[in-house]
Design a protein around this nucleic acid. Structure first.
Lengths: 156, 156
DNA sequence: TTTGAAAAAACCACGTC
DNA sequence: GACGTGGTTTTTTCAAA
């Protein structure tokens, strides 16, 4: 689990984040190594869970998801069973792309992607009918200025 | 550009989102088709820009990114050159994973991933020294309840 | 859409340092 | 231990039917 990551690993991860469809040879060339060590490192990173998933990034708008909301939630309930129910509701809804429990005044933030405002309202109505929440504020995104899943490998 | 997407495309995209490392044969089996048509569809989806990127999802905590903030920004400036400068500042910072321009009271929301609270403060100080903002609220994530990049292909 | 064949890439065993 | 070479197997790619 506590895998030691060195600069070579970081370089490989950087390349994979940028383009996971590169061949081993290409990655090896870019990071200044060769096939086998790169392959072994990727396998280790995968087994250690550092690399969690191989996926594709899709164009949300082209697929009809034209609205994106950030939802700020305050609740007065903090009991375990309420939390479990709330959590399950979020997990079950594919519109919810992110959900965080927060410190401070606001208890939760969600990122919700839907076709349009109507679809958001449907989502919202269903959610509040399932779990009790004290206060909900929806922030509507007008423009996605930046969106990346990449983590910076060489912060410095 | 205006590629017509059918259910078979959607099934393929669903599989690719779940695991982009599957072989064509495996995908074909899962979606009830065979290699060549699946390959042709993927190529088209790629060329049409529906599939934007192949990437890996990494374990942020394992890589030392232990803090995640949502930053709400209000500004009094709405001129073009201020906006361009602000936009560039966000693009240039790898800590900023998402940035949206919002409708309403709050002008922008950012999602920022950093090593710790100290690193966030550094980021914050640098940002406000570069661009003028009226009001900034940082929401600290205590727990990532859900995180997915997957779009639901069969909303219904 | 299926078949199939050429090219490329992944995977893995062995030898080297 | 980590790296490199090379060979086998799988997969991708793209014919042609």
């Amino acid at each position: 689990m506590a895998l030691r990551i060195d600069d070579m690993d970081r370089k490989i991860l950087e390349e994979l984040q940028r383009d996971a469809s590169l061949s081993l040879d290409d990655i090896a060339k870019r990071v200044g190594s060769s096939k086998t060590p790169v392959w072994n490192r990727i396998r280790k990173l995968r087994e250690a869970g550092i690399i969690k998933q191989n996926t594709v990034v899709l164009d949300a708008e082209a697929l009809g998801f034209e609205a994106c909301f950030f939802v700020l939630i305050r609740t007065s309930e903090h009991e375990a069973d309420w939390q479990a129910k709330f959590l399950k509701a979020l997990q079950d809804r594919p519109e919810v792309q992110e959900a965080h429990r927060l410190a401070g005044d606001i208890d939760y933030i969600l990122k919700v992607r839907v076709a349009n405002a109507r679809a958001y309202d449907l989502f919202y109505q269903q959610l509040i009918s399932e779990v009790r929440v004290h206060n909900v504020t929806a922030l509507l995104s007008m423009e996605e200025i930046k969106s990346t899943t990449s983590l910076p490998m060489f912060t410095g």
